[in-house]
Amino acid sequence: MAQGKNGGWSPYLAGGLSGLVSVFSVWLAGKFLGASTTFAKTAGMLEGLAAPERVSRLEYFLKNTPQVDWQWMFVAGILVGALLAALSDRSFAWEPLPPMWRSRFGESRWPRWLAAFVGGTVAMFGARLADG
């Protein structure tokens, strides 16, 4: 297996194989890979716990029913697959701050948490708008 500096596989190999995975998914399940709709559906499920009436009135959630579907399981599977891969070559690391962030912004955790939260909010709004 082509080994990189960090013990990983060549990105060409891993990427090419992931392309094959998506071809088989389209073939066998008729499903194209995607992840962002799952965040919308999960948001709807969580909102539904607090205010079910409100969720049932929102047009967006009528079009995108908040429920566990193929893509939701796909995203859950990414978690499992990445965990298995990280454990298989001991690259799992419980890391509160990314090295590049730490070398630029220091050890304080709050700024990173805030940037990640705000970034996530903006990125997902954009992804939904662009229908990505």
Binding site: G8, W9, S10, P11, L13, A14, G15, L17, S18, V21, S22, F24, S25, A29, K31, L33, M73, F74, V75, A76, G77, I78, L79, V80, G81, A82, L83, L84, A85, A86, D89, S91
Partner: peptide, 12 residues
């Protein structure tokens, strides 16, 4: 599909 994809993302 997710498990395979996540595995490859991590290995890459």
């Amino acid at each position: 599909t997710g498990v395979l994809f996540g595995f490859l993302l991590q290995k890459g």
